[in-house]
Design a protein around this nucleic acid. Structure first.
Lengths: 149, 149
DNA sequence: GTTGCTGCAAATCCTTTGCAAGGTT
DNA sequence: AACCTTGCAAAGGATTTGCAGCAAC
């Protein structure tokens, strides 16, 4: 389960931008289409090379607008590089990223929140946020390459 | 509880470097002393400005050696910038970082691991790693500045 | 016609690397 | 003496920004 991410359509993304007072331009439509097609998440560089006709700056600026609009989540890979994906749920959730192909699954588990409360009592201070990211090897990648050992 | 981090002494750090076949040089002693004095964790830039007499490259290289030696943990702040701190425990653990002053507490909770197993059954693929970081406002910072609302 | 957007290139940030000079064993 | 380290400065990768021209409203 938890396989297919919610797919925002390019039009949904554009409508959200418009709602926030931004203009619907050609480059933005192009970027929105590209993002809409990448359900598994993407990096800024990936988008840029997918869209040689759109300036890097515009790609980055559009991503930022969408992150500000809370349509995209910015998540951090272990190496510190950011990766973006749709906010699938409006509720709080976490991510499981395939370390091999970069595909992302979202998950939510009330246990997580309960756990945090429990851990919180052992800590000095108030928990104001958290980051929980799982790194996985997805089925497809597991089959493709047999890991060492 | 969980307040004071394990304090590695500069000498311990140096001994570890020596054990790994590295030379004990002046700059390394200086860096080790600076790191030993920063129980709460630090960024590379902080160390560099603390040590104007040591080249940035040397600071970065020494940090890397200590991370390789597993004496330092590299943890990611929400903004993606890395922060370093002593490995307090040899066993698996997580971090709680104060978003205000950057102080770090380590914590470990077997519940975390059990939780991950449970979540894992809902995910496609094998969990090969995870990152769990809590962002807190520590007592001291809470008292200093009353947050909005 | 305003005002916002684009794209290029330059700038910035953080980290790594090349290399000659100097330190350590 | 041999080899590792240092530090400077330049290189690198990723993201941001300045600015003139162009497009959307």
């Amino acid at each position: 389960m938890a396989q297919a991410p919610t797919e925002f359509t390019a039009n949904t993304l554009l409508a959200l931008l418009e709602d926030r007072g931004h203009r619907l331009t050609g480059p933005r439509r192009t970027v929105a289409r590209a993002i809409a097609g990448r359900g598994a998440g993407f990096t800024a560089e990936e988008l840029c090379s997918d869209l040689p006709n759109v300036g890097r700056a515009t790609v980055y600026r559009t991503i930022r607008l969408l992150v500000d609009a809370e349509v995209l989540c910015k998540l951090m890979l272990p190496n510190g590089n950011p990766r973006y994906l749709f906010t699938q749920a409006t509720y709080h959730h976490h991510h499981a990223v395939c370390v091999s192909c970069g595909a992302v699954q979202e998950f939510r588990d009330s246990t997580v929140e309960r756990l945090l409360k429990a851990v919180g009592t052992d800590l000095v201070g108030d928990i104001v946020g958290h980051r929980i990211e799982l790194y996985v090897t997805c089925d497809r990648c597991t089959r493709r390459a047999e890991p060492h050992t």
